[in-house]
Design a protein around this nucleic acid. Sequence first.
DNA 1: CCTCATTTGTTCGTATGTATA
DNA 2: TTATACATACGAACAAATGAG
Lengths: 83, 83
Amino acid sequence: MMDLDGPEPLYIQIAGILRRRIADGTYPPRSKIPSAEALRAEFGVSRVTAVNAVGILLNEKLVQGVVGKGTYVSEPPETSGED
Amino acid sequence: MMDLDGPEPLYIQIAGILRRRIADGTYPPRSKIPSAEALRAEFGVSRVTAVNAVGILLNEKLVQGVVGKGTYVSEPPETSGED
DNA sequence: CCTCATTTGTTCGTATGTATA
DNA sequence: TTATACATACGAACAAATGAG
């Protein structure tokens, strides 16, 4: 289980960790990130806290949630020319 | 509709009621217990809460779930000699 | 083979109540 | 009072499996 002991709120810390995993390709575009239940188990927090963490990424449009299916990593925005 | 108003969580109370019904033979071995939808109606809770209650019995191996069919009461464990 | 209804099990998103700082 | 965190609970939606027809 992941250790969280920084000064920041848990949901902020977890959001940061997930954001990093998206950036470094651990969770590639269109892939499904772990469920709220899985995040709850991984980080040792309540499900609500896991949901709130993912909620930050939803707000940033880094991921998209689909009820009954899961939460998926968004397509990266086109920078200018994809060359 | 069954009344639940104890201090314990609904899913714990419902699991206790179902456990008692198995013990007293209301739901005999190999019989099918009511579906999640039927439990939802009987106890006046959400389907998820009914599923969670049954999940406790699944964890205790008192029942076995079969997707598409139902949830069945397990065989009672052999005590020593089945005399 | 296909469609429909039922059923288990999972998932997201939200709301409420409690406790803590 | 506000922010955080937890457990509980609900509704909606989805997948997979089963069985009827």
